[in-house]
Computed example of a mutant assay.
Amino acid sequence: MEIHKTDTPSRELLLLADESEASVADYIGRGTCYATYDDGRIVGQYVLIHTRPFTAEVVNIAVAPDRQRQGIATALLAHAVDTARRAGFRLLEIGTGDCGLGQIALYERCGFVRCGVDEDYFRKHYPAPIFENGLECRHMVRLRMELR
């Protein structure tokens, strides 16, 4: 699977991973987007930003619904790790809603470890409640990986 930097990310996928237009608008201009394609259509992408000294974060990662559970997200995360490492970052972070059990499991399988919780993150920063797996997402679970 080839993953390339893109200046034209899929807005639909960005909003699939992050329902807040304001949030996406905030980081899309500060980050670098990488995508994988199938017949000219973006089927998976992620956005990487430099957050603090020696630290990068995957702030958005999404795979088209019809292409999920095919290893695309795993490949995108491996690419993000390699890209961050080659850029000299020492820490790679990622966050997701507390109800995103599948996402948390994926990130942990890829080597990320839980490092904290931003309590009431979604209630404080999103205009409407977000529901996943039948539950309201309130907290952001933070995970990180040390890059060596």
Rank of each mutant, 00 (worst) to 15 (best):
E12M: 09
L13W: 09
L14W: 14
L15I: 04
L15R: 15
L16M: 09
L16R: 13
A17Q: 04
A17D: 05
D18N: 06
D18Q: 10
E19F: 08
E19T: 13
S20T: 00
E21W: 02
E21S: 15
E21G: 01
A22T: 03
A22I: 03
A22N: 02
S23T: 12
S23H: 12
V24Y: 07
V24H: 07
V24P: 03
V24M: 05
A25D: 11
A25F: 11
A25S: 10
A25H: 08
D26R: 14
Y27A: 15
I28Y: 00
I28V: 11
I28D: 09
G29N: 10
R30H: 06
G31T: 07
G31A: 13
G31L: 09
T32R: 14
T32G: 08
T32I: 02
C33A: 14
C33S: 14
Y34S: 07
A35Q: 09
A35N: 10
A35G: 04
A35K: 03
T36M: 04
T36P: 07
D38I: 01
D38N: 13
D39S: 13
D39V: 09
G40W: 03
R41N: 10
R41C: 07
R41E: 04
I42K: 01
I42C: 09
V43Y: 02
G44Q: 09
G44P: 07
Q45C: 04
Y46N: 12
V47I: 13
V47M: 05
L48G: 12
L48H: 14
L48V: 08
T51C: 14
T51D: 14
R52E: 07
R52C: 08
P53A: 15
P53L: 15
T55Y: 07
T55Q: 15
E57Y: 02
E57A: 03
V58L: 04
V58F: 00
V58K: 05
V59P: 15
N60I: 00
N60R: 06
I61G: 05
I61R: 08
A62S: 11
A62Q: 01
A64K: 05
A64T: 05
P65T: 00
P65L: 04
D66F: 03
D66C: 03
D66P: 06
D66Q: 06
R67M: 09
Q68R: 03
Q68K: 09
R69N: 13
Q70N: 09
Q70K: 10
Q70V: 05
G71H: 11
G71M: 01
G71P: 11
I72F: 04
I72W: 05
A73P: 00
A73S: 13
A73T: 07
A75G: 10
A75D: 11
A75P: 02
L76T: 04
L77T: 01
A78F: 04
A80W: 01
A80H: 07
A80L: 09
A80N: 11
A80T: 13
V81I: 14
D82Y: 02
T83V: 13
A84D: 10
R85I: 02
R86I: 08
R86S: 10
R86Y: 15
A87I: 00
A87M: 11
A87L: 00
G88Y: 00
F89L: 02
L91I: 03
L92K: 01
E93A: 13
E93M: 14
I94W: 06
I94G: 00
I94N: 05
G95N: 06
G95E: 01
G95V: 00
T96F: 01
G97Y: 00
G97C: 12
G97L: 04
G97P: 02
D98A: 04
D98I: 00
C99A: 15
L101A: 15
L101K: 14
